[in-house]
Design a binder for these strands. Structure first.
Lengths: 207, 207
DNA sequence: CGGTCAGGTATAACAGTGTTATGACGGCGT
DNA sequence: ACGCCGTCATAACACTGTTATACCTGACCG
């Protein structure tokens, strides 16, 4: 089982196994249940395995951080495939809805990514940048499509995407924290708010 | 207010000391530095002190959670006292700005409140409700003042406050997570967005 | 005044954590 | 074949939250 297929590096396969085992433990028992011994046992090895593959718990958390952004991007593309065609502002709302679904579906992973759920861990700058670029890329693209169709005002697409991300993130975060009622209708109106502010013919800030 | 601060018992004075010592450690060394032994040493006692006063680390975290909402409310009222008179939509933006200032000023406490920074801890339902009512109360009040002046559209004030809170929380959270550029101008435009969507004469969602 | 009881306090022990040192094993190049 | 390097598992270390135990203080009552 060791050395027949070299196409993917065997270490990467092992890393993937460990990451998925860790993600399973994280989803099941929360960040408190993510211990090196349990991860090692779940992946069929010893705690040293995590050290040789990731350099410690911080490295494993970094891999889970990146994995979270990958899963979020997958969920977003899947949600966009069931949304109106490009150029419809509802696609921006669909991105926000996918964001909330991701947070509610795996709140522990969401907390690891955005809430310092692993005490000593802060993601590496490159990993953070990659995650930010991934989610911002999808959002900027859908916003720019709407601007090209004239369904959204031609403001800086990145800035519009920023505020849409912030809104979706705030809704999802407060939802997970149990501070917002989990009402589906109220959720859509909240997610619609930032794109409503960039609709053609909207109000401008009073000077 | 009654649920957040109890006056009578002399034990509460000790509780206050311990809470402030813990808040100091939290602000200085982050959630990872908040250990019972360090808290006890900083408050001049043994670890049992935390158990007799709070019943354990979860109880201490709950007290810190409530303390965080009190400090946030104080910062908000202070920010509102330097804002335009009631009825000006800029007051809502000022609330969001105070929210971001709070998050950046004590990111560890912010993470404890909203990000599961203490592994096993989730706030008690009453404490959570008290904190939510405290921040929502201020926000609903300032929004309702604007609606009374006609500077904001007469929608459900609580719903408007919800989306303003979510936006401010998302901005603050992504800022603390290092995922948004810390640009002051961009911050104000983002915080203005949800109130912009409720200005009189604004656009409505296309059916 | 003396005895008794309750409750807070400190000490020490326990299970569990991340991390690191210590050897043992196996594959590889020279 | 030999030495070497990396990987693995085991065990130990320092630390965590929690709990049991003993002590000591202070109030209450005979």
């Amino acid at each position: 089982m060791t050395a027949l297929s070299n196409l993917p590096h065997p270490d990467d396969l092992r890393r993937r196994e460990v990451v998925e085992a860790a993600a399973g433990l994280l989803a099941e028992d929360g960040p408190a249940g993510l211990t090196l011994r349990r991860v090692a046992a779940s992946a069929g090895g010893s705690t040293q395995l995590v050290y040789t593959l990731f350099g410690g718990k911080a490295g494993l958390a970094d891999a889970l951080y990146a994995e979270g952004f990958v899963r979020l991007a997958d969920l977003t593309t899947r949600s966009l495939s069931n949304a109106p065609p490009p150029g419809d502002p509802d696609r921006v709302v669909a991105c926000g809805r996918a964001y909330c679904d991701f947070a509610r579906g795996d709140s522990a992973l969401f907390s690891l990514m955005f809430g310092r759920a692993i005490p000593g861990f802060t993601p590496r700058r490159e990993t953070r940048r990659a995650g930010r670029d991934a989610t911002m890329g999808q959002l900027v693209r859908t916003v720019a499509e709407c601007q090209a169709e004239g369904t959204l005002v031609s403001d800086d697409a990145e800035r519009v995407a920023h505020v849409c991300w912030a809104t979706a993130h705030g809704v999802a975060s407060l939802l997970v924290a149990g501070l917002l009622p989990d009402d589906d209708h109220a959720l859509t109106t909240m997610l619609r708010t930032p794109v409503l502010a960039h609709l053609p013919g909207g109000a401008t800030w009073p000077s």
